[in-house]
Simulated scan of single mutants.
Amino acid sequence: MSGREVKLGQTLSSLIERGGYSRNRQEILTALDISPAALSQYARDQTRPSFQKLVALADFFGVSLDYLVYGEVTETVSDDSSVAKYVNESVSRAMASARRHTDLVGRIGRVLSDRVDAVARELADSATAGREGLIQDDEAARIEGYCLSAKILTLDLQYDLIAMPDGEPAAGEFLEVVAKNLAKGCDYQFLVPLGSEGMVEQFRTLLTDRVGRDSVRKNCSFRRTGQPVTAGTALYQLDMVALQADEPALLEQMGEYISVGGDFGYLISPNSDSNSDMVMNKTHRERAQSAFAALWAAAARV
């Protein structure tokens, strides 16, 4: 081993900024076929990309793997060197393997699609998070995708924005869900504490880049409350027909917490150590809806 310091996150952040991708990373995401959260995690050194993704990143920015990983400019490696041969052979094997397994993956996908609902129902009948009154972040994001309207009381928009090393925000796990919902006409109300104006503007900018200013103005409202805020809340009205058709297992898992009319709510975790939130029962949800309405009426526009 060379003992060199890995500087992937630092180098990637610098390439993103120098390439003019700080505000809109969609071209990078499309080229690598990754999510915004994955790219942000690479740039923050929270996760490491696979070898294929490293090669794709280097190709996209037109740099060597040494520069991407170590931030160092090195001499061109001759084609007959062991490193060059290893790289070429690895890429060739990966491409050949992908072609050989295309049909197999397709068959596996069809089998899994036939069994996934049955397996999910088995999990729902056991000691799952839904039965315990908890909802995982990915489950909350999937459910939010079926919102007709959403009322969000948030302390810091941490699930919608990710702070990047260069100071520019990146899309968090829920921002893409919000953008897709706005494009469909879903109505959002975000209630934030005092001092959140900067985050709101960053959030608006990222949403505008995705769905346009008119959709954001029409369907996404922000107000700030002067009341003390100690915990976040998400209150949804869901499209039950679409949810039943697309996510029957998830609906079964969370069904006892969703009203006939599609009302659903949960308390947002107050720390980043857990990826679970607490689902509200009918009584607490109705109290939260009344409290949100009162705070919203008294809050100032942002």
Rank of each mutant, 00 (worst) to 15 (best):
A242K: 15
A245G: 12
Y236A: 05
A245D: 13
T225W: 05
C220V: 01
R223W: 05
P193C: 11
T230H: 13
F203P: 03
R224Y: 10
G232W: 03
T230E: 12
L250S: 07
A234I: 07
A231T: 11
G232M: 11
L238E: 04
G195K: 13
D214V: 03
L243Y: 11
T225G: 08
A234F: 07
E247R: 11
Q227T: 14
L243R: 05
S221G: 03
V241T: 15
M240H: 01
Y236S: 05
Q244L: 05
L194G: 10
S215E: 03
M199N: 13
L235Y: 04
V241Y: 08
P228M: 02
R217P: 01
L194W: 05
G232D: 00
G232L: 09
R213L: 08
R223E: 03
L243P: 07
V241M: 14
M199K: 14
V241R: 13
L235S: 07
L251M: 12
Q244C: 04
R213K: 12
A231K: 11
G198F: 12
V200W: 04
A249D: 10
V211G: 05
L251A: 02
L194Q: 15
E201I: 03
D209C: 04
G226I: 06
V211M: 00
A234Y: 09
A242Y: 09
Q244I: 03
A242D: 11
K218D: 01
V216H: 01
S221D: 10
R224M: 10
E201P: 00
N219I: 00
G198P: 03
L207I: 01
L250G: 03
R223D: 04
L207Q: 05
D239P: 09
K218R: 15
T225S: 15
L207S: 04
M240T: 02
D239E: 14
P193E: 13
V211W: 00
T208D: 06
Q227P: 01
L251E: 02
G195C: 09
G198L: 13
R224T: 14
Q202G: 10
Q237D: 11
D209W: 02
T230F: 14
R213Y: 00
G212Q: 08
Q237A: 07
L206E: 01
F222S: 05
E197G: 04
R213G: 01
V229S: 05
Q237Y: 06
T208W: 00
Q227A: 14
Q202S: 13
A245E: 14
A242S: 15
R217H: 01
P248G: 06
V200H: 09
A242V: 04
V211Q: 00
F222K: 03
N219V: 00
R223L: 05
T208I: 15
L235H: 08
A245P: 07
T205K: 13
G226D: 14
G195R: 11
S221K: 15
V200K: 06
T233H: 02
V192D: 04
G212R: 09
F222W: 10
S196R: 10
G232T: 03
T208M: 12
V211E: 01
D246T: 09
R217Q: 04
Q244K: 14
G195S: 12
T225R: 09
L206V: 02
Q244S: 14
A242L: 13
L207W: 00
L235Q: 12
L235F: 08
